[in-house]
């Protein structure tokens, strides 16, 4: 069986992640040998599978919210009736991206409290920005000639949007979603400091309790997760370009 390189890379990353998540307990003797001074060389308060799933749920939910809201806003301001608001939306998105994600996360706590909710809100807000910017840029990049010919074929505005503009803009929009998901994967790890249970938890617990084994275990898995997501988006990007040329 032959795989194309992109699928191969994704499979490899997935295998590495699965091996780390499920096989970490088997490495307990290794960590015990590396750090003989530690009473507990393996993070066992939760299983790594639970933490990984919680982490992915937080990243997934916040990214979905951002794609829905940011995509709609980006579509709205590229329609004739919403064009007046485009400058405002772009100003908010540009301004917001200068705010460091960790500061946005920290500021969510005084307004909302501790737990997964402030993390979800901060991550959603932060993920909105690249989605909005790339939705606008992608739809903007569709040439007027293409739109004219769609109209010439008798398509209405919504049909043009869904059958012409969005497929053509898909690679650019997808790039924005990718940025959002990758940033959120990292920020979700830091969200353990505001009370969300994610893969950052072993790292934070390890750092606070001088348990380097915990730090390595959490860091390896969250790093592998980021690589899986990156490889997945690389794969999707190639498909979306093909969809665009065939669609």
């Amino acid at each position: 069986m032959r795989l194309d390189p992109l699928t191969g890379r994704l499979m490899l990353a997935l295998l590495a992640l699965a091996a780390l998540v499920l096989g970490m307990p088997a490495l307990k003797p290794l960590f015990a040998a590396l750090y003989p001074a530690l009473d507990r060389p393996l993070y066992e308060a939760e299983t790594f599978l639970t933490l990984t799933l919680d982490h992915m749920a937080l990243v997934g939910a916040s990214s979905l919210i951002a794609v829905a809201a940011g995509g709609l806003a980006g579509i709205a301001v590229t329609r004739p009736w919403g064009a007046e608001f485009r400058g405002l939306l772009e100003a908010v998105a540009t301004m917001g991206q200068t705010f460091p994600p960790v500061a946005v996360l920290a500021l969510a706590v005084p307004s909302i409290g501790f737990g997964p909710l402030p993390a979800l809100i901060a991550l959603s807000l932060y993920a909105l920005l690249p989605v909005v910017r790339n939705t606008i840029a992608g739809l903007e990049g569709v040439s007027d000639a293409v739109r004219e010919s769609a109209r010439g074929l008798g398509m209405g505005p919504w049909e043009t949007l869904f059958r012409v503009e969005l497929p053509l803009a898909a690679p650019v929009i997808l790039a924005g979603v990718r940025t959002a998901v990758i940033v959120n994967t990292g920020t979700a790890a830091i969200a353990s400091t505001v009370g969300a249970k994610t893969l950052g938890l072993p790292i934070i617990v390890g750092l606070n309790g001088s348990n380097q084994a915990y730090v390595i275990q959490g860091a390896l898995i969250v790093g592998a997760l980021a690589l899986v997501l990156d490889a997945g988006f690389e794969r999707l990007a190639a498909w979306s370009v093909r969809w665009r040329t065939e669609g």
């Binding site: 390890g206 750092l207 790093g223």
Partner: peptide, 10 residues
């Protein structure tokens, strides 16, 4: 793409 906290930890 590597989360900052992971790179710091590693």
């Amino acid at each position: 793409t590597i989360p900052s906290i992971a790179l710091f930890g590693l």
